[in-house]
Amino acid sequence: MKKSVLVVEDQSSQRKIMVEALQRAGYTIYQAADVQQAISLIQQQKPDVVVVDMHLPSGDGGDVIREGRKVAGSPIAIIAVSIDLAILHQNLTSIHPADAYLSKPFHPRELLKIVEELVGVSL
């Protein structure tokens, strides 16, 4: 069964790079550009992994992480992404920490490696 990934990124060029790399690797992809879209997709699709930028319109990545942690059923792995290392460090000690962290800029291979580790398969 194909694993699914929700990419939450407001910058379309960044989102496109992540989506294309994940699609080439065989993942089913969902996309969101803001917190509300992300929460709706988490509730409807229950992806295996959420890749979330911590700086989003109408809220922050922490809102998305909290919603991902509430979803019943199989746990959702969460990757927090930010250009701001202080934000990533703050998330490490928060109540709802992510499962992995990526600092921008990063190579798509880094993202694929983390996703594969979190879902436990190499596609």
Rank of each mutant, 00 (worst) to 15 (best):
I78D: 06
D10P: 07
E110N: 15
K46V: 10
V19M: 04
E20D: 10
L41G: 10
L111K: 09
A77P: 09
D34C: 05
M54F: 08
G26D: 02
Q14M: 14
M1T: 05
Q31G: 11
I83E: 12
R66H: 09
V8S: 06
Q45E: 01
G62H: 02
D34S: 04
V5S: 00
D34E: 08
G26S: 02
S103R: 10
V49I: 12
D10H: 13
P57N: 01
M18V: 04
I83H: 12
Y27I: 06
K70I: 01
A72L: 13
R69K: 15
A25E: 15
A33T: 13
S13L: 09
Y27Q: 08
D48S: 12
D10E: 11
E20C: 13
D48N: 14
I87D: 10
V52I: 14
L123R: 14
Q37V: 01
P108E: 06
A21H: 02
L88S: 12
K113A: 14
K46I: 05
I83R: 09
Q23I: 07
V35S: 15
D60A: 00
L6E: 02
R109F: 08
G61N: 12
V19A: 06
S74N: 14
L56F: 00
V50E: 00
V64Q: 02
D48E: 03
A33C: 11
L102F: 04
I29S: 11
M1H: 10
M54T: 02
R66T: 11
G59I: 05
K46C: 13
Q36L: 07
